[in-house]
Design a protein around this nucleic acid. Sequence first.
RNA 1: GCCGGAGUGGCGGAAUUGGCAGACGCGCAUGAUUCAGGUUCAUGUGCCCGCAAGGGCGUGGAGGUUCAAAUCCUCUCUCCGGCACCA
Length: 963
Amino acid sequence: MEIFDQKLSVIRRKGILTVPKYNPAEIEPRWQRFWAENKTFKTPEEATGEKLYVLDMFPYPSGDGLHVGHPEGYTATDIVARQARMEGKSVLHPIGFDAFGLPAEEHAIKTNTPPRVSTERNIKNFVRQLKMLGFSYDWDREISTTDVAYFKWTQWIFLVLYDTWFDHEQQKGRPIAELPIPEDVRAEGETVVRTYQDEFRLAYQSNALVNWCPALGTVLANEEVSDGLSQIGGHPVQRMPLRQWMLRITSYADRLEKDLDSVDWSDGIKKLQRDWIGRSTGAEVDFFVGSEDDMSDWKAVRGQTGFPRKPSSEVLRIYTTRPDTLFGATYMVISPEHELVQSLTTTARKAATEAYCEAAAIKSDRDRQDEKRTKTGVFTGSFAINPINGKQIPIWIADYVLASYGTGAIMAVPAHDGRDFEFAKMYQLEITPVIKPPAKADVDVEAVLAGKKCFLGNGNGINSNQYDGLETQEFKTRIIADLEQSGVGRAAVNYKLRDWLFSRQRFWGEPFPILHEIDGHGIKTGMMRAVEVTELPIDLPYIEDFKPHGRPEPPLEKADDDWLYPVIDGVKYKRETNTMPQWAGSCWYYLRFIDPHNDQAFVDPGLEKQWMPVDLYIGGAEHAVLHLLYARFWHKVLYDRGYVHTTEPFQKLVNQGMILGDVEFTGYRNTDEKWVSADQVSEDENKKFVLEADNSLVHLVKLDPEQAEKRDDGFVLKSDPSIRIDSRAYKMSKSRGNVVNPDEIVADYGADSLRLYEMFMGPLEQAKPWSMAGVNGVRNFLDRVWRMVVDEKNEEFAVNPAITDDEPSDAQLRMLHKTIKAVTDDTHSLDFNTAIARMMEFVNYFTKEAKRPRELMSQFILLLSPFAPHIAEEIWKLLGGADTLAHESWPKYDEALTVDSNVEIPIQILGKVRSKIMVPRGLSKDDLEAAAMANEKIVQQLVGKHVSKVIVVPDRLVNIVAN
RNA sequence: GCCGGAGUGGCGGAAUUGGCAGACGCGCAUGAUUCAGGUUCAUGUGCCCGCAAGGGCGUGGAGGUUCAAAUCCUCUCUCCGGCACCA
């Protein structure tokens, strides 16, 4: 507030408030009202001509309001949208709110208000702030995922998922009615057929191990857990078996990976998604568990029947990416949760394995990792037979094998797998090398061959009978073919991606449109049915107490019987009481924006064709995997079922970089309050700062920039240059107290300054530190723009006397056309920082000109308008423009006027600039060389030297090689 | 540990993709205007030597390719972000 207040108070004191100084506090709300009243940014009904769908990742309306990170992406899209409208494109630029989910509910619990009330209040505040920043959204299309009219269609899409199975042959989702039913299943009757169908649906229930978070009172998706802690709140998460809704995203893993090729996203984000999907190829192999005598019988049968779809009870099935190391498998490991744990454990080993598995079950993921990965395990007492060489090998249980990946069991090849190697060392298990490292590999080949070192790379087979000498790739192909031939193995693909755990035990989410059949005693029969589409939406019931309670029954269990037990055709059902996770609403909101008020369909097919795909999608990188993967999955299902016409929803994706707090200087003092050099301080495990030398505690002291001084490659204390200090920008956080509030910036400098500053800070995708001085800098620029056109000395709001209707000079015209070209190109390529720099150069030039042609000023104002729309509208009107400039044509430039007629050419001798000459643009190579060689300074410099070569690049430089 | 991204003045950052390093902004300095200034205007501002003309050095570090390297290659250091026993 200070700066602005001071300026105003000075003006007020002098009683000359009428003086037309640039005053955003007055201008900006006025224009915002104008745009709202005139619906200036209404989306055209039909997308005629070229269309552009520019989308922001819609915000989660937290109680804290916008932080300065939001307007960064929003300003970028707003500039693109405003420019595109002026270029005559049909623009769809909407906004909405992602308002379901945990944080809203946590907040509701804390403040003891129903989530709908606090959510609506928060949205109101967000809308106020967004409007205050002058974004050109079509407010008629505002949506919230919590609106009943919206989540009706979220529920409808869930029913589409429920009604779809994935046909792996066609790689396509199809209606469940088209699922082929095997004769034997059909023969068993209706109930069995329905159960069979339920096994194939994209939305299904499963009793899998889930991430249960007692503190949040809900299960969480794998993606929402990191380091064994919930991403929201950082609470510990346990694994426990619970019946949950899952979405079969793994069926789409291949397409989710392949289709990344077709979208315009950064390589970094694509890689993040690919890694998350984590596709790997290898083989599944069955190891016979039994006596060596029965082994040959088993092999004979397998040779006949081939490899069965599901493993029979006498085998242990494993997955490996290295079937070429099969001869090196010296033991096997199953996870503690593996279904064969009991049957494989011998009586003698029972106590030991039970103790181990129990311990593993109680351990949270967090605890498992805390043990610094020292491998533990226990022998089952059983042996399996390696199908390739008939060798008996022991079967172990260890928690370094995950139940949820592959088959939950592995063949251990300690010679060529780091984890197996470590485990084998620990328990003195056999190590048999089967790969000879290539000569160029950077390893101790002798040690590898002696089983003393582990080698992970490719090489040539050894100790592998008929495969000896084969190179890894060749080896894999051959052995997989042979395994398939003999029916003991087959090629297989695996993904790190797991099916998506889709239900939550919370109140504030979309209810599932699913009914469970119950018998006369109120017990679920296991049969369920979808709510009829005509019965949608299923609204949340009113519940007095919606708080979670640390037990897995959802809060909706406490709903009234009316809601909980509907009766249809005389049959009593119980509603599903889990709710959907926050991601549900954000999986398809971009489609709803196209047709937000349609109550007949989630989107009109004709409109969908006109507007999809999203041409530009901007948001934070924190959504690089979760939201984007989920939304792409839903979109593909909708595509398969014919509801949308593109395979991918978001054509171009840009992630804005994080805005960090202002740069801070920090020094350290020891317990005696003596300064300690920062390079001797480090953080210990408890995040405490200690002196490296003796681990004694030191504390952090925030320093004023005045106390710091640059020395070599860092900063030191001015008062004692032997003390080094840290200088860094930190992530904004309440605890650090470096959060910048957009409301305050708008009050102090104006919305246009905030917009302009955030775009001027640096490249959009880069992390950048905030600087108040920088905001002041762009405000100065807008002040200069104002004075360039407005007469500040006049008491009326009038144009500056320098504004003329005279013809512009050649130099002025070139300045304008250069600026138009640069701003146009830079804006298209999202290089907003350099676009603004070019506009600053324009203003620097014209404020020095005594005559400023009106037409040139108008053209410039149009260029400025997407960046700083309020001041631009105001000046546009003063210059005689009508109504609003929002739909004026974007300025065009004459290519011939974007270059100067003369160019300055540096002349180098051995790469060092020795002179410069002015020559006409386009001067020929020979003429340029002659001009350079004739230059006085060059002639002097070349005295006594021999010119061996002259490099001439027309319009650029001359380099003389002389010595 | 693995995978990404980045290192350029006191600071944020530019650099037509191999062609004058430091555009633009902040900061700082000097001067003018002003009762006053976090006003406005003008000039200067990478570092070192020099009164100057001029010269030398300079894009994290070391080497290389080239007439020419912030940009390409090899090695290396630092910082930021993500993933983390996925067989």
